[in-house]
């Protein structure tokens, strides 16, 4: 792989990698570090890239591995938390609307963050990033049935919570 290929195929995934790392680590700075490390690793192993069929899924898998390494390392502390990434709101609404939207988004964000690890990862990859089952298998190194079961359970939990919230008038 040369520089042009890197620019056209790896760099566009930048934000997906970042979001995935952020979902795993809950900390923006660490997620940034992880993404940088992914790029270095991809570039350094560019000779082997011909054998890889799905470059994007492969990059996501490296992101996951590096993020997990970071989590395991002793200096990593899960600080910062959720309040770091609430800036995804559009700014064209009135403050009242913004607060309303903000609340629901934080609620849903908290719901997803509260899911078990595998379910959370599957929801992130499927419903947010729109990956196919096969790609998710590749990224998370799970088999198809596990991916489907985790997705099903995650969606059930979300459904229960959303329906419950609605009935309480939230």
């Amino acid at each position: 792989m040369n520089k042009e290929m890197f620019i056209s195929e790896v760099l566009p995934v930048k934000n997906k990698l970042f979001r995935f790392a952020l979902r795993l680590l809950n900390n923006e700075d660490d997620a940034k570090d992880v993404v940088q490390e992914v790029f270095i690793r991809v570039w350094n192993s560019r000779e082997k890239l011909k054998e890889i069929q799905n470059l994007e899924a492969w990059c996501m898998r490296i992101t996951k591995n590096i993020a997990l390494d970071k989590m395991k390392s002793s200096y990593y502390k899960n600080t910062g938390g959720l309040e770091n990434h609430n800036h995804i709101l559009s700014s064209e609404e009135t403050p009242y609307q913004t607060t309303m939207v903000n609340d629901t988004i934080i609620n849903i964000q908290n719901l997803i963050s509260g899911l078990p690890e595998k379910q959370r990862d599957v929801i992130q990859l499927r419903d947010i990033e729109g990956y196919s089952y096969k790609e998710i298998c590749e990224i998370l190194t799970l088999d198809m049935s596990q991916v489907k079961i985790n997705l099903f359970r995650a969606r059930q939990t979300l459904k229960d919570l959303i329906v419950k919230k609605e009935s309480y008038g939230l």
């Binding site: 930048k14 934000n15 970042f18 979001r19 940034k32 993404v35 940088q36 995804i88 947010i128 990033e129």
Partner: peptide, 8 residues
């Protein structure tokens, strides 16, 4: 969430 970007 899928359009969330960050100046990495």
């Amino acid at each position: 969430a899928s359009s969330q970007t960050k100046d990495i």
